[in-house]
């Protein structure tokens, strides 16, 4: 099921600084990612992987430079517009899942769309159910706090894809899982992104995951190494 429009990234002259630090946390002259590409982002911890993800998803705005997704420079959007843009185009998978306890698997998958639009579109619920079955969650009404960590991350994968975004961004999706669970999450992430025709950007240390992605970006001290 291909997404409506998979955006291409053109990033230019980006510099991100944190107060009190002399060196910029991130300094990238240019970076382009084509629609549908799968990209591994690697590097030692503290090298700026999370900062880059924050900038690509509009969670953080660099002091300098432009982050252009198919003609939309998200650094120039207002905060509200950036939130709306992210809700529409980005699916996030985070290391700590960030599922909300007390809600069922299905409710968690639908929560971002509920909060963004207040009301669900007609296809949203069937799509969420399909995705949950696809990631191997059979009890849709199971409260997430009763799930294993592997199951939780699979729910998070389903959630990232539920709104059919063009870009899936995952920050260490397998780092807090055991090998088997990590393997199954990695496989699902790749398969589902491929099925959706979306771009996939994964920051990871996982040696099993990196080789399965088309492209490797290596970051060191906030700069890209080839």
């Amino acid at each position: 099921m291909p997404s409506e429009a998979v955006p291409a990234l053109v990033l230019a002259d980006v510099e991100l600084r944190f107060p009190g630090l002399e060196q910029p946390a991130l300094a990238l002259a240019s970076l382009t990612i084509a629609p549908g590409e799968t990209v591994a982002l690697v590097g030692p911890s503290g090298c700026g992987k999370t900062s880059l993800i924050n900038i690509l998803t509009g969670l953080e705005v660099p002091q300098r430079g432009s982050v252009d997704w198919s003609g939309t420079d998200i650094t120039r959007l207002s905060q509200g517009a950036r939130d709306r843009w992210r809700a529409r185009h980005i699916g996030l998978v985070m290391q700590e899942f960030h599922l909300f306890p007390g809600l069922s698997a299905l409710e968690n998958v639908l929560l971002p769309q509920r909060l963004a639009h207040f009301r669900l579109t007609d296809g949203a619920k069937p799509e969420a159910e399909r995705l949950l079955r696809r990631v191997g969650i059979d009890r849709l009404d199971q409260p997430v706090e009763t799930m294993s960590r592997g199951q939780m991350q699979r729910v998070a994968v389903a959630r990232a894809l539920a709104a059919r975004p063009g870009v899936i961004v995952a920050d260490e999706p397998t780092a807090s899982l055991d090998a088997d669970a990590g393997e199954s999450v990695a496989a699902l992430l790749l398969e589902l992104t491929h099925e959706a025709g979306a771009t996939l950007i994964v920051a990871t240390h996982d040696p099993h995951l990196v080789p399965r992605l088309h492209r490797l970006l290596r970051l060191e001290s906030g700069r890209l190494k080839d």
């Binding site: 998803t57 992210r86 809700a87 996030l92 985070m94 971002p112 909060l115 963004a116 207040f118 709104a163």
Partner: peptide, 17 residues
């Protein structure tokens, strides 16, 4: 703040938070 940040990151608009 992490949980609230996650809501935002996942696409919840600020008024919803």
């Amino acid at each position: 703040r992490r949980q609230i940040g996650a809501l935002r990151a996942l696409g919840a608009p600020r008024p919803a938070v």
